[in-house]
Design a protein around this nucleic acid. Structure first.
Lengths: 199, 199
DNA sequence: GCTTTACTTGAACACTTGTTCAAGTAATAA
DNA sequence: TTATTACTTGAACAAGTGTTCAAGTAAAGC
């Protein structure tokens, strides 16, 4: 049977996402990819680099989806879809409710320095994409023009992260729906005074 | 030098809070407590039970603080204080910005079943205390009477968790202040329609 | 003083971890 | 067929983990 790169990375992603970096032992990986240690080390230099490859793909996928949201006819509706999708995944994909990057942060200093960078880049990129979404929503009159873009993007991203963490340990679908609804009420409601830039 | 139980647990708390359960090796613990393995195992049955003891104390401390907030003259003001305190800890106590329980959740199944239970109890208790706080605030006319207590408590707790996670990887004090202000605006603003109980 | 009890020590143990590499197998080229 | 190249295998390794326990030390009781 021939080796399939895409499939191997998919399997690795699934494992890392479920168990985290540290808890996914090389023996688990060997089993998941149905490959022997030598083969794995021939293709990926180490467990660390394998994980990095996984995260790189995760980031790219994430970025693409968020740009789509920003370019949608109704960014707010698209955003709602984007947010709800991972929260309501079926039981067998529950592990995907939690963000892989967020899950990785506590393990950050177990990773090689390059790998750490890739993880942090993913977060930075996400933040930038959320800014795009908000700008686009303002542009299309779905959000008030005086929305404080940068702060609101931080806020929005944090809300999303919090929601995913909540959903990953909480089954109550009604509760999740409540929180999402609340998020969109608050998104369009008042913002705190932002400090003047110079003083 | 005589053994000091309180101090030992304090040191252990600090270590676990900084590095997490798994990453705190027995050798780290030995060094932090300045005790040899045999002594540690004589007092605490295992690393697991030591961690459990730490979490039990953490939970009790947390509960006490939240009950104080509920019983304060102005629960909302007390709540603001309660929320801001861990977010603005000095640089050398940055580790305490993240909630110990939240930090532990990803490692939950490395723990013994009793220890797992103690961690989950901590979260449940927190939730119950947040309900008390909201009820008290309604009672004292600081929140509208139609606030959906249970859902709002879930929401509030999740906001707090999210904020602590944000503050633990983000230095920007102005950004943190912005988020806290936003939280209190949203706390007193509109809530989504809650589904009827029977249908 | 001596005996008994309580506590401490740290080398050693069994097990798990990520990683290596000589040997083996399959595919391709001549 | 034979020679060369590309890839795979899995036992073995070094370093790390939580834990044990026989031996040692200090304290308390008489």
């Amino acid at each position: 049977m021939k080796y399939n790169h895409t499939e191997a990375i998919e399997k690795a992603t699934q494992l890392f996402w479920q168990k985290g970096f540290q808890a996914s032992g090389m023996r688990d990986i060997q089993h998941a990819l149905d490959m022997r240690p030598g083969s794995i080390y021939a293709r990926f230099k180490s467990k660390d680099v394998l994980f990095q490859t996984v995260v790189e793909q995760y980031n790219e996928c994430n970025r693409r989806k968020l740009v789509e949201v920003a370019n949608a006819v109704s960014p707010i509706n698209a955003l709602r879809e984007f947010i709800i999708t991972p929260l309501t995944g079926s039981e067998d994909k529950r592990y995907a409710r939690q963000c892989l990057l967020v899950k990785t942060i506590p393990e950050l200093d177990l990773l090689g320095i390059n790998c750490q960078q890739v993880v942090m880049e993913g977060i930075t990129t996400s933040r930038e994409c959320f800014i795009l979404v908000i700008e686009s929503a303002i542009d299309k009159n779905e959000l008030p023009a005086n929305t404080p873009v940068s702060n609101a993007a931080d806020w929005l991203m944090n809300q999303f992260i919090g929601l995913r963490a909540y959903a990953s340990i909480n089954d109550d679908d009604m509760g999740i729906k409540f929180m999402v609804d609340k998020l969109f009420i608050d998104l369009t409601s008042a913002w705190p005074e932002t400090q003047a830039l110079s003083e």
